[in-house]
């Protein structure tokens, strides 16, 4: 049966090895969560991912999914009650085909680069590490507006090439018209 659910390969022991190999790369962690996760600063993401894929303890050779989450509440009344500051979060779900365990890597980004609405935040691409990331990063760029630096071919994938805005942003406004097709 599967080893999932047991903490051994991704428990504190594994994180100690990670800390030893790349000191300071883990800026946050929660191993008690439903899906144990580690957080890392954006500029060290590729370093961490390369280690996770190639280390000799638990090789996370498969990237399953990249998700971007927009933590932003457009309603000012509700926004006053939330406990977090507005930010973007990019979540990587990794899987090891040998050890059959998963690991989640989270990265926090500002919603806009330099606090200038419209300037997309940048994050280094991991398409050179897992090729799954090629299309997944294109999707995240398209729908959530994250600029992946170093991506071989970053263009929209699901929306048309001339689409404006990033629909999965919380403050996205539905266009009223697209090439003569009426919105609402």
């Amino acid at each position: 049966m599967s080893e999932r659910g047991t903490a051994a390969p991704r428990g504190p022991g594994f994180l100690d090895l990670l800390d030893e190999a790349l000191p300071g790369v883990v800026s946050g962690r929660n191993l008690e969560a439903l899906d144990p996760w580690v957080e890392c600063p954006p500029e060290r993401l590729t370093e961490l991912c390369r280690w996770l894929k190639t280390n000799r303890h638990v090789r996370f050779d498969s990237l399953e999914c990249i998700t971007a989450v927009d933590w932003f509440e457009p309603d000012p009344k509700k926004a006053a009650k939330v406990s977090w500051q507005p930010h973007l979060e990019v979540v990587y779900h990794l899987w090891s085909t040998d050890a059959r365990v998963s690991l989640v890597v989270k990265v926090k980004l500002p919603r806009w680069a330099g606090d200038t609405p419209g300037r997309l935040p940048e994050l280094p691409s991991v398409a050179g590490i897992w090729r799954t990331a090629d299309w997944h990063e294109r999707e995240v760029f398209d729908l959530s507006g994250v600029m992946f630096t170093g991506h071989p071919d970053l263009r929209r994938i699901l929306c048309p090439e001339d689409w404006e805005g990033h629909p999965l942003r919380r403050d996205y406004v539905m266009p009223l018209e697209y090439h003569g097709i009426r919105g609402k």
Binding site: M1, S2, R4, G5, T97, R100, S102
Partner: peptide, 15 residues
């Protein structure tokens, strides 16, 4: 030839 099927190898809530 990769021996992986989540019905056997997945998370316990599924397996």
């Amino acid at each position: 030839g990769v021996d992986q099927d989540l019905r056997r190898d997945g998370e316990s809530i599924y397996t």
